[in-house]
Simulated assay, not measured.
Amino acid sequence: MPGQPSTDPLVPHAFIASLPNILTGVRLVLVPVFLVLLFVGDGHETFWRIVAFAVFSVAVITDRFDGALARSYGVVSEFGALADPIADKALIGSALIGLSMLGDLPWWITGVILLREIGITILRFMVLRHGVIPASRGGKLKTLVQAVAIGLFVLPLHNWPGIWLTVAWVIMWAAVVLTIVTGADYVVSAIRNSRGRSAGN
């Protein structure tokens, strides 16, 4: 009857199937919002840096949720496998560039991380015809550590006890190491996958 909720079991399933992609889209929308907040005033106003951190955290949380939903309900798609890491890189990349522009993070760290992320994204498209290579556990850990490290640098650490800045640097160094190691691992996996598909043809 009109006005009655649908009892069709396909309706909630269809919504759940599209939810991971919706969350990915939300994360992309939050990127410019985060950047605007990061640069409010002189870029070092305590209140706005905390607000920027909150938006950054929400964006990171959507990444945790969309991946978990996709795996739990078996709705992993090629679009999600490609769009999700692109959304991650847009968020992480914009945050790194913003922090370097503000003088809070050395440009060489931003360069190393972005070079790896852009290179792997290009490689994903190059090997697409051989099938999508999903993110490894190491890659997921790398993304998490990067997010934590960047989140700490987004916070107004200059107004807090020095121990927090030390913690932020320790985690950032761990992120740089994981970035390099997982990047090399992905290249090796892509080469093996490409050779394996070629041998099977």
Rank of each mutant, 00 (worst) to 15 (best):
70 A>Y: 05
10 L>Y: 07
193 N>R: 13
102 L>V: 12
126 M>R: 10
61 I>N: 13
36 V>R: 12
199 A>W: 04
169 W>K: 10
86 I>N: 02
104 D>K: 12
158 H>M: 09
57 S>L: 13
174 A>Y: 02
19 L>Q: 06
3 G>H: 02
104 D>C: 10
146 Q>M: 01
64 R>W: 14
72 S>F: 13
66 D>W: 02
145 V>I: 15
176 V>N: 00
23 L>H: 12
54 A>F: 00
143 T>A: 11
154 V>R: 06
145 V>W: 05
171 I>A: 06
59 A>M: 05
168 A>D: 12
9 P>A: 07
76 V>T: 10
152 L>I: 11
75 V>N: 11
77 S>K: 11
138 G>Q: 08
179 T>F: 02
131 G>N: 07
93 G>Y: 04
144 L>D: 13
119 G>P: 02
79 F>R: 09
88 D>F: 01
174 A>N: 02
46 T>D: 10
98 G>N: 00
139 G>P: 10
178 L>N: 10
160 W>T: 03
137 R>G: 15
78 E>K: 07
171 I>M: 05
83 A>K: 04
150 I>Y: 03
68 A>Y: 15
82 L>C: 09
124 R>H: 09
116 R>F: 03
138 G>F: 13
152 L>N: 03
53 F>S: 01
127 V>Q: 09
25 G>N: 08
118 I>N: 00
62 T>R: 04
164 W>S: 05
188 V>N: 08
154 V>A: 07
29 V>C: 04
66 D>P: 11
36 V>C: 05
191 I>C: 06
125 F>H: 14
80 G>T: 14
33 V>H: 06
41 G>S: 15
53 F>H: 01
92 I>N: 02
95 A>I: 03
158 H>G: 07
4 Q>I: 14
135 A>Q: 04
37 L>Y: 01
144 L>V: 15
142 K>H: 01
187 V>I: 06
137 R>M: 13
61 I>P: 07
103 G>C: 11
88 D>P: 07
22 I>T: 12
64 R>S: 13
22 I>D: 09
168 A>M: 10
86 I>L: 13
106 P>D: 08
73 Y>I: 14
7 T>G: 11
103 G>T: 03
24 T>V: 08
30 L>R: 03
47 F>Y: 08
50 I>Q: 06
161 P>K: 14
6 S>A: 14
124 R>I: 08
130 H>Q: 04
59 A>P: 01
170 V>G: 12
27 R>A: 06
